[in-house]
Nucleic acid binder design. Sequence first.
DNA 1: AACTGGATTGGAAACGTTTCCAATCCAGTT
DNA 2: AACTGGATTGGAAACGTTTCCAATCCAGTT
Lengths: 335, 335
Amino acid sequence: MATIKDIAREAGVGVGTVSRHLNGVTLKPQTARKVQDAIDRLGFTLNQVARGLKTNRTRTVGVVIPNFADIYGSTMVKYLERGLAEHGYGILVCDSSDNPVTEAEKVSQLLQRRVDALFLYPCSSNLSYLQRIPELAGPESKFPVLVADMKADGYLCDQVRTDNRDAARIAIRKLIADGHRRIGLISGPNGYFTAEERKQGYLEALEEGGISPEDSLMHMTPHFDEEGGKTALEAMLDATDPPSAVLACNYYTTLGAVQAVYDRKLCMPDELALIGFDNLGLSAMVRPALSILVQPMEEIGTEAARLLIRRMHGDREGFPVVLEMKANLLLKGST
Amino acid sequence: MATIKDIAREAGVGVGTVSRHLNGVTLKPQTARKVQDAIDRLGFTLNQVARGLKTNRTRTVGVVIPNFADIYGSTMVKYLERGLAEHGYGILVCDSSDNPVTEAEKVSQLLQRRVDALFLYPCSSNLSYLQRIPELAGPESKFPVLVADMKADGYLCDQVRTDNRDAARIAIRKLIADGHRRIGLISGPNGYFTAEERKQGYLEALEEGGISPEDSLMHMTPHFDEEGGKTALEAMLDATDPPSAVLACNYYTTLGAVQAVYDRKLCMPDELALIGFDNLGLSAMVRPALSILVQPMEEIGTEAARLLIRRMHGDREGFPVVLEMKANLLLKGST
DNA sequence: AACTGGATTGGAAACGTTTCCAATCCAGTT
DNA sequence: AACTGGATTGGAAACGTTTCCAATCCAGTT
């Protein structure tokens, strides 16, 4: 492959001149032409690895997400990539398989590859491994780290996520406005940030509505999964005083809840009003169509890109920033 | 950040020795200990960019897919990443937004970043831009390129994809075995490889069953989308001699078809048997549960990783290889 | 104790850029 | 025609590794 030296020789100029041309410095027109001709003639392409070594910037952001096959994460990454690509940045992505150990390993691999910043969608709120990383440790670390969808207070990073409390709150408010008083919640495990925030929003909305919470109506499923969603809804329906409305707090528990509704042949919204979470495509497949809280994945990805670009350009304004984007409540036939 | 020279000085050895230690060469035990101590003491991490420049290998595979937010592509990439990571390779991913021009641009950006191989999930079967790339042009190019889910005959690359003919064939065979004679097809635009292959499989199965194809039962939707799926099914149902069974050939047309079924309040499978495509999660949301052809995304990703690893290690056996993986027909209540 | 030769180690050169300083160019002035 | 000084250009040094050759070490032999 042709190098800058080959171009310099071919064009009869110095390597510095070729480099300047490649970096957008305006040369004397005839010099520029000679250089460009040589580039075209030899089919030269700049070696970004060499440039990266010299400039100490790879124009690459490291991304770690728990599961690529999950629409939520992959949609965020889609818009992250789009936003970064506009500024010439690429992404090096890793799947942590929802395993905190793998997550920490992937982060250190990415740093060995000298990414310019990290986009982390962690699988737990334990980010202590960040402290053990020399580049990141110390209060004066300037290495940009952005945490998505998870609380990272106490760590030096920006955060972008859905306003989970608000999401649950607007859903529950709507159910209360529809006259429901016994409203069930299917959320995730205690200690899991988004699960707890959504529960918090639920509690706040109940309080606003003057409804006192009942333990029997709040199910913190152990794995935030389909099975848990189904079991939780069945348990509530089997209890002595079943709910007339339920909010399922993620995609998988929504799947499970819908199945319980089908199995019991309940008619929505009359026998049970249901609001699901996350997956828009799903909504239309349920009859009546499922009302759903849609997280602003595009916005999160786009804002994350914008913020990371700023940080990589040295703008530390407002650091550390916490951006909470509002979810959208799409009302359909199930409420 | 500490470099290999700092380690050499700190440990009182030469840089070559440190390099050898880092590359797994066994040193004299006490030398190894001195080096390791220095590494630990200074918190050294190897600069992979510098290594990449010297070795001319980045241990990175470039990935271009049309839409990250699409479960099909992102699941393939998940398993691709997993398979490559086992061998120390990372992936640099780009979303082409289903745009052939962007696709070509992303490919050349990836090559500037000196990826060791390319995983391409192209948005059209026109891969002519590959020829214009100096690294890839010429019959003797050794640069590994793998094309997923698309025909790339005539280009020098390996191919891994679903056996689309077989997929459609087994679905139609099943419908024929169930006694259906009038079977509809909802596929994608002519000229679109997977759409045509699936149609081909449909035709083959009809022929086996001694059924002559009818144009009015074959709908090649212009965009392979939800709208097209719905419209196509409605058109078939409104025709004088409607089908008793239908195969929708991708996720989006399946969504559309299911909606048409709902709107007309048809009872599956009695009034219409339906087989969908791609999205497993969807199946359980439809009642009766939707029979579905599930593409072997995990297998494709895993096999692609295996093949790319081999190619990057210089093994050219069987080049160019075409791997067609069998889809899985999951039978549920809708047939 | 001196020698031998395989094992181990040291360190220069190189990978392909960028950047800085010095050298050269050349339009405008005298 | 000679001079001036800003604009342009040339090219050495450096980024942090790997690798090769040469130098050193040292266990085993004499």
